[in-house]
């Protein structure tokens, strides 16, 4: 017990100093929040992500968007589990033949109005797997795509900027 107490006292604070949070996050975030608010009248923008055969790089970046550093949820964006609840469908990876039917079904099940976003190089153009026997190719070969966010994988900043441009474009 005493050992524990002494350890508590002798060990100081080990937390790191918060790194400098880039200002662009706040900037884009505020714009995004404003845009979503005017678009939906206070409701959040709900994103359902479909992994149609990616390297998971895009998923990591999307997950990172939700952590304490970026914290996308304060801007009015949330990720949902069921396509029935989704406003935006983000698709990553070149669509493999196995996932083609599932992607089509998810698209069918999403109620309109919906926005389909192709995330990453593989989804936009097929990437390095283009013309492979195992993939169908770009997402637009399977379902109609409204927007593209290229990159392999796109950085969180790219994703944020991309989402902002999509939302402002939709508003018009």
């Amino acid at each position: 017990m005493l050992r524990l107490l002494s350890k508590i006292i002798t060990t100081g604070k080990r937390t790191e100093k918060c790194p400098q949070i880039p200002t662009y996050i706040e900037e884009i975030g505020e714009n995004l929040k404003h845009a979503i608010h005017t678009l939906y009248g206070g409701r959040t923008l709900r994103i359902r992500h479909v992994d149609a055969g990616s390297t998971n790089g895009e998923e990591y970046e999307l997950t990172a968007l939700g952590n304490a550093f970026y914290d996308i949820e304060r801007f009015g964006i949330s990720f949902v589990a069921s396509p029935r609840h989704a406003d935006v469908l983000t698709v990553s990876g070149p669509v493999t033949r196995n996932m083609e039917h599932a992607l089509k079904t998810a698209y069918e099940m999403t109620p309109g109005p919906k926005i389909v976003v192709a995330l990453g190089d593989g989804a936009c153009t097929g990437g390095i797997w283009k013309d492979s026997y195992a993939v169908v190719g770009a997402v637009e070969n399977v379902i109609p795509v409204d927007a593209r966010i290229p990159g392999d994988p796109p950085t969180p900043e790219d994703v944020l900027r991309g989402l902002l441009s999509i939302v402002t474009a939709t508003r018009k």
Partner: peptide, 10 residues
């Protein structure tokens, strides 16, 4: 309303 099948998670 558009009627589709129930979402069955694949």
């Amino acid at each position: 309303a558009r009627i589709t099948d129930t979402w069955d998670c694949g």
